[in-house]
């Protein structure tokens, strides 16, 4: 079986077949990460395509010091953060700032729950609102939290991907967790975790 490094070396020489294997192995992971970061199917699709184009263009820069997937994650995070920056500036033009925007959404969630607790408990609806809660995090907090808790990457690899120290990664993750705890506390008092996860 060909390793990532062999495939990368072949792809560097313009071998699209080799690169297609790398794409096949990683496309779903890239999509998941893009979706977690953007909370939007269309953005996730565009980003996952863009990530592989960017990766192919800059294959010469990949020296094999880290895993190929880690390198792809790094490109994905950068692409997501770049798109998110553009989007947040658009949101700010309509609402005062991102905090106000999220507070508005969370209030909506609370009202929905009070009006129809059964519907609110539906998994799809809950997931949608949990994803929205993620937007309260800063870009770095969200990056760390998503990679660690939603994509199951170890802290060490996240540290490599985001070029942050291990201490910073841990600190950002715990700060993110505390923020999410505060944001979601209103319904956790009412609904058990078992109910939420079905």
């Amino acid at each position: 079986m060909e390793t990532d490094l062999i495939l990368v070396e072949r792809a560097k020489k313009g071998d699209l077949k080799a690169f297609s294997k790398l794409v096949e192995q990683n496309k779903k992971l890239v999509y998941y990460l893009a979706y977690d970061m953007m909370n939007n199917r269309e953005d996730a699709e565009d980003i996952s395509q863009e990530v592989f184009i960017k990766a192919y263009k800059s294959l010469a820069n990949f020296r094999g010091d880290s895993k190929f997937s880690s390198w792809l994650y790094r490109i994905t995070m950068n692409t997501c953060l770049s798109l998110r920056r553009n989007k947040s500036s658009k949101i700010k033009s309509g609402v005062e700032d991102i905090e106000d925007y999220l507070e508005h959404n969370l209030t909506e969630m609370k009202v929905s729950y009070e009006q129809n607790p059964e519907r609110f408990a539906e998994r799809g609806f809950m997931k949608k609102n949990i994803d929205k809660a993620l937007n309260v995090l800063s870009p770095r907090e969200k990056s760390v939290f998503v990679l660690r808790n939603m994509n199951d990457l170890p802290f060490g690899e996240i540290s490599e991907i985001l070029k942050l120290t291990l201490g910073t990664v841990r600190s950002l993750n715990f700060r993110a967790l505390k923020k999410l705890q505060n944001q979601l506390s209103f319904y956790k008092n009412t609904l058990s975790v078992e109910e939420i996860n079905g």
């Binding site: 496309k27 699709e45 949990i130 808790n149 967790l177 705890q181 979601l184 956790k188 975790v193 996860n197």
Partner: peptide, 26 residues
């Protein structure tokens, strides 16, 4: 409270991509 919040995200299933999109990805 922290543990429940964490489990909420850790146990959350990934939103699967559109099948057609994935098939025509390459």
């Amino acid at each position: 409270s922290l543990k429940e919040t964490l489990e909420l995200f850790q146990n959350r299933e990934h939103v699967e991509p559109d099948i057609i999109f994935m098939e025509s990805f390459w």
